[in-house]
Design a protein around this nucleic acid. Structure first.
Lengths: 158, 158
DNA sequence: TAAAAATATTTTATATCTAAAGCAATAATT
DNA sequence: AATTATTGCTTTAGATATAAAATATTTTTA
């Protein structure tokens, strides 16, 4: 079955490329912005929801466990970048949202992030980028149909 | 600059697809083989080097820190899947290699892993897989030329 | 309405991860 | 040969991750 081998090869290639880029992004976030990818991901999700997100919704969006988000929120909160807001009418829940300082800080990080990606992928033409994105979109839809994780937002978009 | 936007979009798509597949693989490794992706990666690297790998070489191949490999090796070793072998002529170094039990166990995991990938990517034709792999290979080479990480093996190949 | 079930979050026990410090042993310098 | 530098690995401190248990609150059920 050569198709099976081709698919595995594709997977290994995808993994290598993505891990390589992710490695660079983590490194630059740490060196140039004194933060980490998980923290960036949390702030990115919050920046797309200015009214804030409930903790459980946030962990759902990012596809990580509840306890994980608790810890990251604690640390971001200690630094004044996010804040926990009580939800009126439900004393169990909390909404997490960016503070003004968090918004400013994330805007700077997001700008840099876009530049890094653009530079790292500078060898890919706009046409190639569109073609690959389309192909990936097609089979993302296919593989997601097999599973049931449809309504999750992507964790990383800005 | 539409090219920049197209590249960022491509990156987000890549990330989403790879994270999704990786999530499934982690889940199946945990549920069906009572192990984790980092452990699988270590055993995979060792299986491609039957004579074993020095700890430092292993962390280099996997692109993780030294201390990280120490911990994973400790736990795999406790379970009898890998063993530390003294290096004659250099009392600082240790070689890590699969035990017989480790070889058997990994063979089963690797077979399953190949099946999972093939099934998850069943929506991708052999031709599409080859085309995408080639494209990815091209720009992996390009982006790696910018950086200097050339001689690293890929962490995941079997 | 009292009891049971469900929901929202945090806490706990472990594993994974990094950077940096520590410890040994080897190699290079003078 | 003695000092210095380098190399190989482990340990440490702290962040990130999960599953499972614990807490608190709300909703449902009987």
């Amino acid at each position: 079955m050569t198709a099976a081998k081709d698919r595995v090869r594709l997977w290994l290639r995808l993994l290598k490329v993505v891990r390589g880029i992710e490695y660079e992004v983590r490194d630059k976030l740490r060196r140039e912005h004194n933060t980490t990818l998980p923290r960036f991901d949390v702030m990115s999700a919050l920046s797309r929801h200015p009214e804030g997100l409930k903790m459980s919704r946030l962990s759902g969006v990012l596809r990580v466990s509840n306890g994980n988000v608790t810890g990251i929120a604690d640390r971001l909160s200690d630094e004044g970048l996010v804040e926990r807001v009580a939800v009126p009418g439900d004393r169990r829940a909390t909404v997490l949202r960016l503070t003004a300082a968090g918004q400013t800080e994330f805007a700077s990080q997001a700008r840099a992030h876009e530049d890094w990606i653009n530079q790292m992928l500078s060898g890919v033409s706009a046409e190639d980028a569109r073609a690959m994105a389309a192909r990936l979109h097609a089979f993302a839809a296919a593989t997601e149909a097999q599973n049931q994780t449809s309504e999750k937002e992507d964790a990383h978009a800005q």
